[in-house]
Design a protein around this nucleic acid. Structure first.
Lengths: 146, 146
DNA sequence: GTTCGTGCAAACGGTTTGCAACAAT
DNA sequence: ATTGTTGCAAACCGTTTGCACGAAC
């Protein structure tokens, strides 16, 4: 169950302690964008773990590139398992962040900024608005995934 | 000098007290992206003003749509005078935010997300990387403006 | 017994809030 | 007098840090 998670930790030079594995298991398998406190609330149900350990572990995972830290909404950092490039859509009412597939939006001419002195290492489109209900669960799911 | 600023405040139903005019004058004329504390440091040199008043005023201006609050970097909110649409480039070393002209990058197919249940009200491209020095000041300036 | 990870509580930094003083109408 | 604005300090909240305990090699 956590064999693959342990493997990933070790590959990245992280000692797979029980606590770290628990945090990593949760954050690597979520498709949401939980804050550190939310991770703590969830993982803390299964074993005794302090906020500090959760924060430290998440930062460690982020440093090693296993997950990504996002600061899109105000006042808090959220984490997501690092899966390829994608864009983000933020529901203005609920604050919920949705992943938008890379191919769903096309961005062009970013290379053109090179000449103006901008070495763009990464970029994404950040969208804000409202999320509507959609009839077909297939569509919704496909858009939500990745 | 502050006649136009006062006018803009009144147009938006904001009573133009001396303190509010001072804050508004500063934030509306900057082309940077100062945090509330930075605004306080600057405005505080000219008149006695408390942090609370600066924070309250900036939030008020943001609520009324005169300026925009951004949370791109972690741990702090920065403000910018609301001038049309543009993108943002964040220097990963310094944290400095640069405005990138709307036309410099083209984004297409955002409308296509409508069908997937996303009512996109606004969007922008957020880029991260490193800012290089550029020989021609003309180029640099043009890219930085707006 | 040295090294590393953890829990706890305190510290921290940016932001907000409560409240009494103070305009201005 | 009522209404709204300000300064100050305290509260707040997410996050980090210091430290002593404990497990593992």
């Amino acid at each position: 169950m956590d064999a693959d998670v342990i493997a990933r930790l070790e590959e990245n030079g992280i000692q797979p302690s029980a606590h770290r594995v628990a945090v990593a298991e949760y954050i690597l398998h979520t498709d949401g964008h939980p804050s550190a406190d939310e991770v703590w609330a969830k993982v803390g149900k299964r074993l005794l773990i302090s906020r500090a350990t959760v924060y430290n572990t998440l930062n460690l995972l982020a440093d090693k590139g296993l997950i990504r830290a996002l600061t899109l909404a105000e006042g808090r950092v959220v984490f997501e398992p690092k899966l390829g490039r994608h864009h983000h859509f933020i529901d203005e009412q609920s604050g919920v962040i949705h992943d938008v597939p890379w191919e769903a939006v096309r961005v062009s001419d970013v290379e053109g900024l090179e000449a103006a002195g901008y070495d763009v290492r990464e970029y994404q489109v950040v969208m804000r608005g409202r999320r509507r209900e959609v009839k077909e669960p297939k569509q919704t799911k496909a858009a939500r995934r990745r």
